[in-house]
Simulated assay, not measured.
Amino acid sequence: MHAAQRRLALLKMLSLLGVVLTVGVILLGAWTRLVDAGLGCPDWPGCYGALVVPDEGRALAHTPEAPLESAKAWMEMIHRYVASSLGLLVIALVVLGRPLRRRADYPWRLSLGLLALILVQGAFGAFTVTLRLWPQVVTLHLLGGLGVMLVFLWLHLRLRRCASGSLAPGGVAAPRRALTPLWGLAAFLLVVQLALGGWVSSNYAGIACQGFPTCNGEWWSGLDWSEGFHLTQSVGPNYLHGQLHAEARSAIQVGHRLGALALGVAILALLLCYWRETAMRPWLGALGLAYGVQFSLGVANVLLWLPLWLALLHTAGAVALVLSLALASWRWRCLAPASTTTQQSSLQKKEWLHV
């Protein structure tokens, strides 16, 4: 195998490992939040000034106002260790990919973008602790983790295309279909819904509503929208367990439900518009299934009062939804444009007639 091909094979493997590892980091972060371990270590990047969780005496001497809870501290540090390994993996991808940066089809700028994103995500990890779980930062940290996963996936798909040498004659990239506005709308609504989910979690509004589809027996009354979505909350209080009153949390929960409804309509529209394309059916089916499972998990969390394992599955469902939409949109772009397909069919027909 040629040296460049061996390097590409290694980069493909590392980028796929990055997707898997990022999913692990997201789920570890969700579990850390669910068991109230987000401030298990009151400082950053160490824990009570140490690289590993110290004993109770050292912790008390370092931060006497934050008593050590060893299990929570270890949960937080394990999350940090795995997230740090993700950063090292991105650096390895950039270093190993540098010799290929002049290839026309190599995603060099995407690799650099991933490095910049992982640095920003690391900063948000620090702010999550130093700003005492400020909901704005916690929500952005969740979106950043999903963004890192998505860029890893896109990098992997680009590397696969690069390794396959799928260039048209003359070194020009094969034609790709542009995403239609409907794909853009679905992607936008998914981002909004993920942000709403992060806002629910960071404000501890997961069980603010009893019952479904109504909220505490009401459809609309008893909701404080202005306070629930007041984005300029003061920085400084400890936001562990939240600071908002019940009506504000109920408004956040209802907002998340409305976001789920809007996203469902957009995904249904994608299925109805593009199901006729046979090559798209497995990907659209996976997208529809991911949405259906995620919606069911959300309802179950409300009805069963947010058991920890089910809440973690709901986060995993969000990950699956992001991956399925990304893969479906990639498949859409990779299919030959309709005009190209028609021209090829016409050419084949003429060749057959001349035989």
Rank of each mutant, 00 (worst) to 15 (best):
W220T: 06
A208D: 03
L182M: 13
R249N: 08
V192I: 09
Y204E: 04
G206M: 11
F212K: 02
V254Y: 10
N238I: 05
L244P: 02
H241Y: 07
P213V: 07
H256M: 10
P237T: 12
A260W: 03
E247P: 05
R257H: 13
L179E: 01
I252W: 12
H245P: 05
I252M: 10
S250V: 02
A246K: 13
A208G: 06
S201D: 04
V191R: 00
A208E: 07
S226G: 12
Q210E: 15
V265E: 07
P237G: 13
A205S: 10
L240G: 01
V254G: 03
G184M: 09
G264P: 10
R257C: 12
V254I: 13
G206H: 06
A251E: 02
H256P: 08
Q210N: 03
S202F: 03
A266S: 05
G198A: 12
A187Y: 06
A187K: 11
G217F: 11
I207W: 01
Q210R: 11
G222Q: 14
L261F: 08
A195Q: 08
L244R: 13
L223R: 14
L189K: 10
I252C: 03
H241P: 01
L261A: 09
W225P: 09
T214K: 14
S250F: 02
H241G: 00
G222M: 14
S250E: 03
G222K: 12
L194S: 13
S250I: 03
L182F: 01
G264N: 08
L223H: 12
A262Q: 02
A186S: 11
E218F: 10
F212N: 09
L223V: 09
W199K: 13
L258M: 01
Q243S: 14
V200I: 15
L261W: 05
E247T: 11
Q233C: 06
A251I: 12
L223S: 04
G206T: 14
Y239L: 03
H256W: 13
